[in-house]
Design a protein around this nucleic acid. Structure first.
Lengths: 339, 339
DNA sequence: TTGTATGCGTTATCAT
DNA sequence: ATGATAACGCATACAA
């Protein structure tokens, strides 16, 4: 039961032999260099004939680069299944990497075992750079990347440790402040917040913005803390809030999914939005248009975020000076019917 | 403005020098072989000291494998943004690849340019195998994989051309037939279907199952064809159906997202489920519990699908005989309140 | 058990 | 413009 011996694939050597020309010249037509028209024709014919395809491992070894950029998704559960923006960010990043002829390689980190393996992968020269989304402070992968000096970009706030790595994101504090102010301007008196993912910068920042907007009127009792940005957390948070203070007439949910959950609880409690209570979300994700009524929310330019993140690592790859700084993208408020 | 010269990383040579031992022995402690305890200790110390990390490109070159498996997501738009199962499939695949010490590499194909680049990537020996989800018939990538003889597994029906590549999936025809029958058993008289993605096997199969279940009572006029498995398509399809035949009292939506869209249209039209019209979906995705009322639907064991797909390529990698066959996973019907 | 030597498939440097 | 030849970093068959 011997393993099926892999069919040896044609090499530069083979095509050189088939074309009756030296390997050096073959390499030249592959990578672009001075080569006569006839030689080129002969070689191209030979390539097609023997079915040659370059061995990237060999190329990487000698070139010292892989033309690939890693896209690291940490915390895949909440990320891949719940985060409404991750897909758009990936697509945006892939767009610009693609035109730059770089392969985007998506790496999922789902366990300690994954962490170690991915660290090896990154160290192994499989990628020239990395985009890291939703890193947590002190994440081991982050440390590896920093130590490796691998060109990288964070999506969202970077862990404080590695200020050498730029990030692209949005101004969560400012956006939260803005939409809270807008909500208050509709004449609500008892404003509450369902604050999610406080262990992530985005979550903490949104709460900060909410507090700043309210100033003196901020009431810590009207903040429900929930673990995730998802629907179930919205349900849980809204229930808590209602139990604590029935007179609530406005709520800022940390994400659209959370807002959707809150709306359901409100409906079950016989209160309608926006008449009885105004509800606003965050993300402008697909959720926003699925709820009844459609959500007023903060628009996140997810695709643009992805594009910028990719741009930032490419810039580092090109060794451009000065080192790229962080970029904050604008987040327009989208006002619909929920408040 | 010279590009920052990459700091040369320590090699086997360096650690051999630091330990005062030959490279061969170093390689042996790395890969497991006969080596004395003292030599091992000295080398491990040296490794830590010089900060050695193996160069995977070099290792791949000589070993002729990468310990990586590609996860190809074709049609990323509908897939990454709308497909409710893709995340779970990925996680399932990653689980088993991870314990087998293989790196899952997620490749997104979003354009012709991507297609070509990914083909190069695969040919380049970056991966030892591939998992392909939602391939279309005659997809160029599929051809490349078949020609390369790269161990692979399809998720979902494989293109007819390459029967050499196994697939793991569900019995779409049977499942659709089953849930349609169940829906009919609730006493509905005018059963319609919103058929999505008929250019994919899953889409076509679900329609076939619907037709089979109805037999003589099948009315082609009551089938609305929509392009995607998403919410918007559900809205569109349901509007069409209602316009064609207002007496509809039962609808089979090709996916939960489609069903959700259909429910909204029904609600706007003043008809309630399940009283006026029974609605069933497909997937048992997160959508199913978000709708009002919760959906009766067909459960897809997404995580298991991912696990099995990974298992199938690993088996090929090990060169096991006989070649693995296709696997069809069971799809229990989950009956909730929408019909 | 350990050291030596060779090859993996490319690119790059040097003559020619 | 082209042909030899030396790396690239590692694993391994063979010799010691």
């Amino acid at each position: 039961m011997a393993p099926p011996s892999k069919p040896r694939r044609a090499t530069v050597h083979d095509v050189a032999a088939a074309a009756g020309i030296s390997r050096g010249t073959v390499s030249r037509v592959l990578n672009g260099g001075y080569v006569s028209a006839e030689a080129r024709a002969a070689i191209e014919a030979a390539i097609a004939q023997v079915g040659y395809v370059p061995n990237t491992a060999a190329r990487n070894l000698v070139m010292r680069r892989s033309q690939a950029v890693g896209f690291l998704a940490l915390e895949p559960h909440s990320l891949l299944l719940d985060d409404p923006n991750i897909g758009a960010i990936m697509l945006g990043a892939n767009e610009v990497l693609s035109v730059a002829d770089h392969q985007m390689v998506n790496l999922v980190v789902d366990s300690a075992r994954d962490t170690e393996r991915v660290a090896r992968y990154l160290s192994g020269g499989f990628v020239d750079g990395a985009i890291i989304v939703s890193a947590r402070t002190h994440d081991p992968i982050t440390r590896v990347i920093a130590e490796l000096g691998l060109p990288a970009t964070f999506v969202g706030h970077p862990p404080d440790l590695h200020r050498s790595i730029p990030f692209v994101g949005i101004d969560n504090v400012g956006s939260a402040r803005a939409i809270t102010t807008r909500l208050a301007a509709t004449g609500r008196r008892h404003l509450a917040m369902i604050a999610a993912a406080l262990d992530r910068d985005s979550g903490a920042d949104r709460l900060t913005g909410f507090r700043e907007a309210l100033g003196d009127r901020f009431d810590p009792r009207l903040v429900a803390e929930v673990p995730l940005y998802d629907y179930a957390s919205g349900v849980k948070g809204m229930r808590e809030l209602l139990a604590r203070e029935p007179r609530i007439d406005g709520v800022f949910a940390a994400s659209d999914a959370v807002a959707a959950g809150a709306l359901e609880v409100l409906r079950d409690a016989g209160r309608t939005a926006p008449a009885d209570v105004g509800v606003v979300g965050f993300d402008d994700s697909t959720w926003a248009l699925r709820t009844q009524p459609p959500l007023s929310t903060v628009h996140q330019p997810a695709r643009e975020i992805g594009r910028n993140a990719a741009e930032l690592v490419l810039r580092q790859l090109r060794g451009e000076e000065p080192a790229p700084g962080n970029v904050l993208l604008p987040t327009p408020i989208v006002w619909r019917d929920s408040a």
